[in-house]
Amino acid sequence: MSTLVERTWATLAPLTDPEIPVVSLRELGILREVAETADGVEVVITPTYTGCPAMGQIEDDVKACLAQAGISARVVTRLAPAWTTDWMSDTAKEKLRAYGIAPPGATRPAESVVQFVRRRPPPDEVACPRCGSIHTVVSSQFGSTACKALYKCLDCQEPFDYFKPY
């Protein structure tokens, strides 16, 4: 296969989400594809939340990183299929936990809109990233960013972020 494509993946490997500096863009599922073109490479990224302020930064990071490596690249943003937390690798989830963020549970794609809305409080069993207890409660559906909810551990009292299934 093309060594340029491999070199591009390798060059982009250290890039992380600016909000979560322990997980790479590839592990998060933001970096989707790299393809060779007539004059360089085309890199496909997909946004997480539509209003996520980190997306502009991520696109700039990708461009700057490749420019520095002397790779001529075009960055394309693709919406479909919509990004989902299910694309996060197990390694990424473990890194999140170690970083103090409870990783997302699985989404429930078959669940209808109305079922989702009526499910209250959410039965997601969220383990405390500090002590592992599942004796936790939600403090707020929105934490430091839209993608996270704010939880509290009732055993060790630690407040923590939960990366919501999306």
Partner: peptide, 14 residues
């Protein structure tokens, strides 16, 4: 756009 927005709207309604 709808597929992405739906994921967010569910949390808004919740």
């Amino acid at each position: 756009i709808a597929a992405k927005s739906l994921k967010e709207a569910r949390y808004h309604l919740h």
